[in-house]
Amino acid sequence: MKLLKFARIVALLFIFHIVFSLFLIVSPTFNAGLLTLVYRKYLLPGPFFTKDRIEQSYSLLLSCQVGNVWQPVSQPALENYHRLMATGNPKAMLQARLDRYFYYQYVISKHKNPNVQINPEFEQLINYYQNYFPVGTDSVKLIFVKKETTDFAIKVDTLYTIKHGVD
């Protein structure tokens, strides 16, 4: 009998979980503090392809000056993503994500404080991207590009170009 009671209690908790989850799904803006925060983050993962994530993306184009010659523009993150698609190597997927992480951090910081060009996020970015600089690089040009796809139209904008000397 005790076992049955226990099973009933667990079942009722379960029903509560399902009902509450469905409520949170159909009321995406409902917010009751920590409970909804924890629920949405840990017990109800998703949604994954939200509008803002797929309609806006950022790229970083890199050009290095070796001697007095500017090298052709490269996109390390995109090249790693293409390597993943060409070879199926999951390490390339992680590498591409890490490449993107660093310049997204800079884009976010720049968005928060547009007047500051060189900030800790930029130092971090340069530090990490040094792996992609050819030997003998004197300066680098970082071109941040925003791509938007709304109403079946593609809009590409250069957000900012930063020229930076390399030690």
Binding site: F49, E55, L78, T149
Partner: peptide, 10 residues
Amino acid sequence: AIFSVANLDY
């Protein structure tokens, strides 16, 4: 959204 995904570089 599908148009956007198809045109997302990454």
